[in-house]
């Protein structure tokens, strides 16, 4: 196996920027098939720090209605992993931001894990999140593969994850670790509860190996700011996808969450 460019944009970003990172998640192929590229370009222009592109799946059990809907529309538009990699290639002609692919395991398994990771590396994907891939399966079967191609892999932790398990998932993650803000499916939520604040604080105190990004439910300038007090930054998904569905300008959305 030939290894490509060992530099990883995620590593660079987290080295350079310790706080206030804004990562935006959107579904590939939504609202229209070709929009994957346009949205990435606009996100970079609007000042986002990082892009997460969702791989659509017919049965997204961890997702609320907004992301479910975007998945269905994208699949109806004909999106496939093959097309997503073509789109990433196009994105990479102009966009320098780190790109993370996130999705359920089944489409990746059908594509073939080895081919998937090598395509990530070839097209310029910096990291991967597969929330339903068990950690022991990752360690025994795929970790070496990801390391070989210098593609980072992030696990999720939640408010119910034990301290011992957080240590394990942190040890197995690379690039960053994904701190799910609330025990629930994806979707817009309001202000943080005191339980959530205690959880974020606990994570901060744990001095994890990886920087942590807070995601799930975040939609406003206020929650963005608050989450940034604890972690390296924030991941916004449903609120952005809802905005796309309503034809809101990408730059307007980004500036509302994080004013210039």
């Amino acid at each position: 196996m030939e290894t490509t460019n060992m530099q990883n944009r995620l590593d660079d970003l987290f080295k350079r920027k310790k706080h206030g990172i804004l990562s935006v998640f959107y579904t590939a192929g939504f609202p229209y098939l070709e929009d994957t590229v346009r949205i990435a370009e606009e996100l970079e222009q609007a000042g986002a720090d990082m892009i997460e592109i969702g791989i659509p799946f017919s049965d997204p059990i961890a997702d609320g209605p907004v992301i479910q809907h975007s998945n269905n529309v994208a699949i109806g538009n004909g999106i496939t992993l093959g097309i997503i990699f073509q789109q990433v290639e196009v994105i990479r002609k102009t966009v320098q931001l780190p790109i993370v692919l996130m999705g359920y395991l089944n489409p990746v398994m059908q594509f073939g894990m080895e081919k998937f990771v090598s395509e990530c590396s070839r097209t310029g994907v910096d990291g991967v999140i597969l929330p339903d891939l068990p950690v022991d399966e990752y360690v025994h079967r795929y970790k070496q593969l990801f390391e070989h191609y210098a593609v980072r892999f992030s696990f999720l932790i939640t408010p119910t994850t034990s301290e011992e398990r957080i240590r394990l998932l942190d040890a197995c993650s690379s690039g960053f670790i994904y701190a799910v803000a609330a025990s629930g499916t994806t979707g817009v939520r309001g202000a943080f509860t005191s339980d959530q604040q205690v959880y974020f604080h606990r994570l901060k105190e744990m001095q994890l190996k990886n920087p942590f990004m807070v995601g799930f439910g975040i939609s406003t300038h206020a929650t963005f700011n608050e989450a940034c007090r604890y972690g390296s930054g924030v991941i916004i998904g449903s609120a952005f996808i809802q905005a796309l569905a309503e034809n809101v300008q990408v730059s307007g959305f980004i500036h509302a969450v994080r004013p210039k």
């Binding site: 068990p134 399966e137 932790i157 939640t158």
Partner: peptide, 11 residues
């Protein structure tokens, strides 16, 4: 078989 679940269901 196995347990291919998101972390949210792990506990």
């Amino acid at each position: 078989g196995g347990a291919f679940i998101p972390e949210l269901l792990h506990a």
